[in-house]
């Protein structure tokens, strides 16, 4: 159902919902950026619509709500262990269309790729998603190329214009709360074109895995992992077993984000690492996003948010890499014919 209501009314509704839900949205953290006097926009808890940063793309995605950067899985002592409690409240997450498609990728990895991940599932099952529209494309966005510029898969859509709020609700509880509000036809804002256009090669022959094409990235990438950490579809984690310093017989197991660009990702027992070259790390990531994942799950993993291009301190463009790769694949095919 579509409604027109006021910001004051919506804030009251969210205040009521906050008894059962923590509300997460992109927020401006003043001065928390990499450099002095630069802000960061990332996810945090909100209590008022005015705290939400609608005007800019968030630097980090929503994924940390469902996949915390550091998450204690269980506690152990001697012969016993206890699973960490799930949060007492569910979550409401504000996010854009591309990120909603990112959610599908996370679901695929954590719920449909072999055993169900119970830690992910228990958060996911209690989370509602509220779509934020995009009136225009941001820098480096290529959602249209990835087909992620629209999504119907939301619990609600919200558009705030001053004191006026337009809502499209797919959620019973919200419909009930909005009973009496003015009915309206509400269609989410979405873009139809981006400045950045990406053409993805249909298949990438394995012969290109060792192509000199990747060497350029080997020289440029500094293995900081920022592209992975801002990506809503990077889902890798690693484990940390902690023994408390006051009592080594007790401790906890945490899982934390991992990055295929950072040293240590491919380390094995005995000290061998099989992707030391940063160009090969780039190849692994790029082909996972637009080649391998599709072969396995039917869609591309990348959702075209462009955050990797926004954040790279060495100005490496993932989008341009795909386009250059497409040219390389076409040229290689011509040579073979």
């Amino acid at each position: 159902m579509g409604y027109q209501t006021t910001a004051a009314k919506m804030n009251t509704i969210f205040a009521d919902l906050s008894k059962d839900y923590l509300i997460y949205a992109p927020k401006r953290y003043v001065g928390d950026g990499t450099f002095v006097h630069i802000d960061t926009i990332r996810y945090g808890e909100i209590t008022d619509l005015s705290e939400i940063e609608f005007a800019e793309k968030s630097n980090y995605s929503f994924k940390e709500v469902l996949l915390p950067i550091s998450e204690t899985l269980f506690y152990f002592t001697e012969n016993e262990m206890k699973e960490a409690d799930a949060p007492k409240k569910g979550a409401i997450v504000f996010l854009r269309s591309c990120d909603l498609h990112g959610l599908k990728r996370m679901d695929t990895i954590y719920l449909e790729n072999g055993a169900v991940d119970t830690y992910y599932k228990r958060l996911r099952d209690n989370t509602k998603f509220i779509l934020m529209g995009c009136e225009s494309s941001f820098e480096n966005c290529f959602c249209v190329s990835m087909g992620t510029q629209t999504s119907d898969d939301y619990d609600a859509y919200l558009k705030v214009t001053g004191e006026t709020v337009l809502v499209d609700s797919h959620w019973d509880a919200l419909d009930a709360a909005l009973a009496g509000a003015t009915p309206a036809s509400v269609i989410p804002d979405s873009v139809t074109a981006n400045e950045t256009v990406v053409t993805i090669p249909e298949t990438v022959p394995q012969t290109l895995f060792d192509d000199p094409f990747w060497e350029d990235y080997g020289n440029r990438c500094i293995a900081c992992g920022r592209c992975n950490f801002v990506c809503p579809t990077c889902t890798c984690f690693t484990m940390q077993d902690i023994f408390y310093t006051d009592n080594g017989k007790a401790g906890e197991r945490r899982r934390v984000w991992a990055s295929c660009h950072i040293d240590g990702y491919t380390d094995m027992a005995g000290g061998h690492a099989f992707r030391n070259d940063k160009g090969q790390r780039m190849r692994f990531k790029v082909l996972h996003k637009v080649n391998d994942y599709k072969r396995r799950f039917g869609t591309h993993m990348c959702i075209g948010c462009g955050r990797c291009d926004d954040v790279c301190p060495e100005y490496i463009s993932f989008a341009n890499c795909i386009n250059k790769l497409n040219t390389l694949v076409n040229d290689t095919a011509k040579e073979e014919n």
Partner: peptide, 26 residues
């Protein structure tokens, strides 16, 4: 809670500054 232990800070501090950072339980 926002740290996954990549140690980029530790390396930068050791190589570019005064080696004031160390790691305890990741």
């Amino acid at each position: 809670e926002r740290c996954m232990g990549c140690q980029a800070c530790v390396k930068a501090c050791k190589k570019k500054s005064v080696d004031a950072l160390s790691v305890e339980n990741y």
